[in-house]
Design a binder for these strands. Structure first.
Length: 342
DNA sequence: GTTCGTCTTTAATCGTCTCG
DNA sequence: CGAGACGATTAAAGACGAAC
């Protein structure tokens, strides 16, 4: 983790020896405004380590609101500060120790520029009359609850669409969970324990015996041969489940259907969405803000699919987590758009 | 009454882009 | 590498009707 504070210089902290608990740092950071880039990606992690900001500035979000075309840290620093950052070691293995010197330098340089970037962005936002918008956005990010864990993460196994029957899905689930447990125990990525494709193969053509399993691609590999009985036990467990315990063929899906289907399913809703999108796109270009930052696309879809019966668009947006600046800016045009007819 | 084949419906991918 | 967004596409289940 990289820290920089005016007057105190830059510090790099390896969280590993602390067992992931960085809460001793919290008092030192309590009174400061945290300047992060794409904070929504790091905050859940930091919160887990015991670090929660009291005030936040997100340079990526600020860049979007300021209407910058490229909001990566590198491009923004280049455009606004005239500096060029070295290309990252994005896909590098940051778990190795000791970390090479040049990686440390690269990591430190990342934060050297953040405070200066904040100052420039603050000035831009103020000039555009968007500083208050940004403050509301930062506060929303700061106080956002951690993302809910996926209810059924095994359903994201790559190739799952090939599996439809509950009995076969049960095998996917069993193998996925067995793999996850083994990966956690060995502390390596699940995909390196057993590829998704092997799970799907085994579910699509369930082997009748351990021997048949051990003859399948991937499973006949040198490393997998030692685990045949482990995988076989998972498959057997799935086979023994009561019908009531089998996973549902498809998740209910609590939101609206895919937009491409709206015209057939509910032409009126499609007309509302088209009108709302047109209005948002107009306001977006008027204020030089990306449409997806004007309103969460998912909230817009839900609004258009099933508008509030009492016509209280502002209340609907507020309950959906929209910020006050968004409500103020959009309620009228969205109310009009909801009156659109096919 | 059952089986087979085709059509419709549905949803989850694909490919693309951008980001860290 | 993995994430989210997007539009287009594709795969598979279910519905329906015809044929035996």
């Amino acid at each position: 983790m990289q820290l920089r504070r005016a007057g105190a210089g830059t510090a790099l902290i390896d969280p590993v020896p602390f067992g992931g608990d960085l809460s001793p740092l919290a008092p030192a950071l309590a009174d400061a405004e945290w300047v992060l880039h794409a904070a929504n990606q790091d905050l859940p992690c930091l919160a887990e380590a015991g670090l929660v900001p009291g005030k936040l500035f997100d340079t990526e979000l600020a860049g979007r609101l300021a209407g910058l075309p490229r909001v990566g840290l590198g491009p923004m620093v280049e455009q606004l500060l005239g500096l060029s950052l070295e290309k990252g070691h994005g896909a590098a293995d940051w778990s190795r120790r000791p970390l090479p010197e040049d990686w440390l330098v690269y990591a430190a340089l990342d934060v050297e520029v953040l405070v200066e970037l904040r100052d420039v962005l603050t000035r831009m936002l103020a000039e555009q009359g968007k500083l208050e918008w940004a403050l509301q956005e930062f506060e929303a990010v700061r106080t956002a609850p951690p993302p809910a864990p996926r209810a059924e993460p095994w359903r994201r196994t790559s190739g799952i669409h090939r599996i439809r029957k509950p009995a076969a899905l049960a095998i996917v689930r069993a193998l996925w969970e067995a793999r996850d447990a083994l990966a956690a125990e060995r502390d390596i990525a699940p995909g390196r324990v057993l590829p998704d494709s092997a799970i799907i193969d085994a579910a699509a053509n369930p082997p009748a015996s351990p021997q048949a399993l051990a003859a399948m691609p991937v499973f006949r590999g040198r490393a997998q041969r030692r685990l045949t009985s482990y995988w076989w036990a998972a498959i057997e467990k799935a086979r023994r489940l009561d019908p009531a315990e089998l996973p549902a063929a498809s998740t209910p899906g609590d939101g609206p259907p895919p937009v491409s289907r709206w015209v057939d399913r509910d032409p009126a809703a499609a007309a509302r969405l088209a009108a709302a999108r047109a209005a948002l796109s107009r306001i977006g270009s008027e204020h030089n803000v990306p449409v997806e930052n004007l309103l969460l696309p998912d909230l817009l879809r839900r609004l258009c699919w099933s508008p509030p019966e009492d016509g209280d668009v502002a209340g609907y947006l507020r309950r959906g987590g929209a910020r006050e600046w968004q409500i103020e800016l959009l309620t009228d045009v969205l109310t009009q758009a909801l009156a659109a007819r096919p």
